[in-house]
Amino acid sequence: MINPVSHEEPLLRVDNLGKRYGTGCPWCDVDEAEDRHCVYCGSVWGCRHIDLEVFSGEILGIVGESGSGKTSLLRCLYFDELPTQGSARLYPYHEGTVNIFEASSQDRRAIRNRFMGMVYQNPLMGLRMAFSSSGNVAEKLIAANWFHVGSMQKRATDLLSVMEIPLSRIHDAPSTFSGGMQQRVQIARALANHPPLLLLDEITSGLDLSVQARVLDLIRRIQREWHIGMIVVSHDLGVIRLLTDRTVVMKDGKIVEQGLTDQILQDPQHAFTQMLVHSLL
């Protein structure tokens, strides 16, 4: 199942992905319907008609206002939710020939543990607060069939040191850490199995400015040194400008514009993107 990642093939290709919350009815599927809320059955499209590609070694930004569907998209990709429609192909999984949403539950677990890492906005969702920090990393390793305790300890210690967690604290529970430290433990946990794809959901919101800078620098370093693909979801255009190569703009669950990040910020084409960019402090 594991294959080397080609630099020319997209690491991740998403086609026509959609997530509807609610039972749905024939009217929900009418493509022309601009409103994401169905007046007949009350269903809501979290995101729909999402097409995008991510390559190894690049960071793709996703921006949009609150409720635009950014997190729904990430949650679908990480199997936290099952999409209503569409497909996603991950190159390391059968060289991108199989839709990961059609994989067996066993394969999905394997994809989640080996090929993807997720860092949630809220560390409570990504960490087990009662475990130690090294235990949090080790849990991911066990899920990927690591057995040797010494190797796991070494791996956890190495990763937590890269994330600048003091060695004296790696046996402490994340509940005793500051918000910035919890985010860094989450990143260490997400990277435990050296996944080719990392998903980051609003990782700097709620952090003070000095901690934000440290986390951003870490992300850039990981991108350079590990050459992995990343999707960074943020409503902060400053974070997107500093971190990403390409950016996708979402509104009402759909992509309204995508392009090079500096082009999106300096020459926005869509009215919504122009409004977003002109609101930048």
Binding site: D217, R220, L242
Partner: peptide, 15 residues
């Protein structure tokens, strides 16, 4: 110049 804050000048140039 738009760079990540709190990264030393030498690393900004080396990136």
């Amino acid at each position: 110049l738009h760079v990540i804050p709190r990264v030393p000048a030498i690393d900004v140039v080396a990136e």
